[in-house]
Amino acid sequence: MIRVVALYKQPEDVDGFMRHYEEVHTPLVRKVPGLAGLEVTRITADAFGGEAPYFLMAVMTYPNRETFDAAMRSEENRAVAKDLMSFARGLVTVMVGEDVE
């Protein structure tokens, strides 16, 4: 399984950010071909008692490398990337991982 993890820092306008994320960005992500799952988590605390460095985490899953590669080349994914930079530039870190089991 391939996972794309997006970590978002605290936005200045939380309500505006979440409105765009839920009404515009998430529907675009769901259109990416081959997407097997999307989980969005609002970060509420740091486990060690400090301030959490992130506000939101999204994990998108793809069943295998071939499906993931095709998804990343799709027009739908280009739309996701364009939208992401329109509202989260400087706030988001995106990583790709592969299950090791």
Rank of each mutant, 00 (worst) to 15 (best):
T41E: 01
I43N: 09
I2E: 03
Q10R: 12
R19W: 09
A81C: 12
R42M: 04
A45Y: 12
R30V: 01
M1V: 07
L56D: 00
M72V: 03
F68K: 06
N77G: 10
A6D: 00
M18C: 06
N64I: 12
V94Y: 01
D13K: 08
L84I: 05
V14A: 11
G49V: 01
V59L: 06
V14R: 12
V4S: 08
L91V: 05
A88F: 02
N64F: 15
D69V: 04
R19M: 07
Y8T: 00
N77R: 08
V32T: 14
A79T: 03
P53G: 04
E51N: 14
L56F: 00
V92R: 07
R3W: 06
E66R: 14
F17T: 07
F55T: 00
N77M: 09
A58N: 05
V94E: 01
V5D: 00
N77H: 13
R65N: 13
F48E: 13
T93G: 07
A58F: 03
V29A: 06
R65Y: 15
P11N: 10
D15L: 13
F17A: 06
V100E: 15
L28Y: 06
R3P: 08
L38D: 01
T67R: 12
G97A: 08
G97H: 01
D15T: 08
V24E: 06
V94D: 00
A58L: 04
V32W: 12
D15S: 12
Y62P: 08
V92K: 03
Y62H: 12
L28I: 04
P63G: 15
R73I: 00
G37I: 00
F55N: 00
G16D: 10
S74V: 05
E75H: 11
L7E: 06
T93R: 02
L91N: 02
E22V: 03
D15R: 12
E12T: 09
D13I: 07
F55K: 00
V14W: 10
Q10M: 09
M57W: 00
R65G: 11
G34A: 14
L84P: 06
E12D: 13
V32F: 15
V32L: 13
Y54A: 07
G50Q: 07
V92E: 02
K9E: 01
Y8N: 01
V32R: 10
T41P: 05
A81V: 11
F48I: 02
Y21E: 00
V96W: 07
R78Y: 05
P33E: 10
E76N: 13
I43P: 09
Y54N: 09
A81R: 15
I43G: 10
T67S: 14
H20P: 03
L84K: 09
K31E: 15
G16I: 12
L91R: 02
E75M: 09
R78M: 07
R30T: 02
G97P: 02
G50D: 07
T93W: 03
G90S: 12
E12R: 14
T41G: 05
A79P: 04
T44H: 15
V80R: 07
A81Q: 15
A88C: 09
D83H: 05
P53W: 03
P63R: 15
G90C: 11
E23S: 14
L7Q: 04
V59R: 03
V59Q: 04
V94A: 02
